[in-house]
C-alpha cells in the first residue's frame, strides 16, 4: 500500500449509467460497507457502554489493564524506531543506486507480509524456546526471550518489518537522485545532503509508514500470542489482555479496552487521510509550478 492519489472522474454526457442504476449501485456499496465495517465498529462502543459510563471508565483502572497498556507502548517504542532506521537505509540503497539482485532484495523485504502471524511467532519459539536451537544455551545463561518481553518485541519487529521500507522505496525511486547530486557537487557532505535534501522530500511518506507500522505494532495479536505465554500483568499486551477479559466473560471490560484500540485506529485513518490530502496538494503545487515555467 502506498500513498494513493486518485483522480476522481468527470462524468461524460455520452456514456454513463442511468440515475436509477447509479443509485442502486451506491446503495449496495453503502449497505455492504455498513454491514462489514460500520456495524462491528458500533458494536464495540455499544458493548463497552452496556453498563453505563461508570463501568466503562472503571475498566481502565484495573491493574492488569494498565500494565498491558504499558507493555504495548514499550513494544511499539522499540519496534517503530528500529524499523524506521532499517526502512530509510533500505530505501536509500535500493532507490539511489543501481546494483544486481535488487528485485530479489525487494521481494525478501516483503516476505513477512506473506507469512501467517502465527508462523511469525512460531519462528522465534523454534529459535529461542526451551526446545529451540538456542534454548539450552539461554537456560544456562538465565536469559528469557520466549514468554518474556524480548520475544514479544522480536515477533512485533518481524511482523511490522516491511511497512516503512515499502512506503519509502517507491517514493524515493520516483524522486531520482538529481537533487542529492547537486548538493554533493556544491560541497555538502553525505549526511548533510541526507538531512537537508532527502529527508524533507520523503517526510510525508516516512510519517505514513510510521503510523501504519505503529498501528500494526500496537494491534498485533497472532504472533505475539504465540511468544507471550499470557502471564497476566507481565507479558500481556493490550490485544492479548482483551482476549483474556473476553474469555473470562468480562465483556464490558474487553470491549472497553477494545474501544481504546478502535479510537487509535480512527486516529490512524485520520492521519492517513491527512497525509494523502497533503501530498496531493504538494503534487498539485509541483504541477502548477512546472506549468508556469
Amino acid at each position: 500500500m502506498s500513498i494513493k492519489n486518485i483522480k476522481y472522474y468527470k462524468h461524460s454526457k455520452i456514456s454513463g449509467e442511468s440515475r436509477p442504476a447509479k443509485w442502486t449501485l451506491i446503495t449496495i456499496a453503502v449497505l455492504f460497507l455498513c454491514l462489514f465495517l460500520l456495524l462491528p465498529l458500533a458494536a464495540v462502543f455499544a458493548e463497552a457502554l452496556r453498563n453505563g459510563f461508570r463501568a466503562y471508565f472503571s475498566s481502565f483502572t484495573d491493574h492488569d489493564t494498565i500494565s498491558a497498556i504499558r507493555l504495548t507502548l514499550i513494544t511499539a517504542t522499540i519496534t517503530v524506531p528500529l524499523n524506521l532506521v532499517f526502512g530509510v537505509a533500505a530505501a536509500w540503497a535500493i532507490a539511489k543506486f543501481e546494483f544486481r539482485g535488487k528485485g530479489i532484495l525487494i521481494t525478501l523485504i516483503d516476505l513477512p507480509f506473506a507469512v501467517s502471524p502465527v508462523v511469525s511467532g512460531l519462528v522465534f519459539v523454534l529459535l529461542f524456546g526451551l526446545n529451540g536451537w538456542f534454548g539450552p544455551w539461554l537456560v544456562e545463561h538465565n536469559i528469557k526471550i520466549i514468554f518474556a518481553i524480548p520475544g514479544i518485541v522480536l515477533a512485533t519487529i518481524f511482523v511490522t518489518f516491511p511497512f516503512i521500507a515499502r512506503e519509502l522505496i517507491p517514493l524515493m525511486q520516483s524522486q531520482g537522485t538529481e537533487e542529492e547530486q547537486a548538493a554533493l557537487v556544491l560541497g555538502a557532505g553525505g549526511w548533510r545532503t541526507f538531512f537537508k535534501i532527502t529527508l524533507p522530500n520523503i517526510k510525508w511518506g516516512l510519517l505514513y509508514g510510521v503510523i501504519l507500522c505503529n498501528a500494526r505494532a500496537i494491534g498485533e495479536f497472532g504472533a505475539v500470542s504465540v511468544v507471550s505465554g499470557h502471564i497476566r500483568g507481565q507479558t500481556n499486551t493490550v490485544p492479548l489482555h482483551i482476549e483474556i477479559l473476553y474469555n473470562e466473560y468480562n465483556f464490558v471490560g474487553a470491549f472497553a479496552v477494545a474501544s481504546l484500540l478502535t479510537m487509535l485506529a480512527f486516529l490512524t485513518l485520520a492521519i492517513k487521510s491527512f497525509i494523502e490530502w497533503k501530498s496531493a496538494e504538494n503534487l498539485q503545487e509541483c504541477s502548477d509550478g512546472s506549468n508556469r515555467s
Binding site: V44, G219, F221, G222, P239, L240, L261, T262, A265
Partner: peptide, 8 residues
C-alpha cells in the same frame, strides 16, 4: 481492516 487490531 488494516488499522483495526485483528482481536478487536
Amino acid at each position: 481492516p488494516f488499522a483495526l487490531p485483528t482481536a478487536v
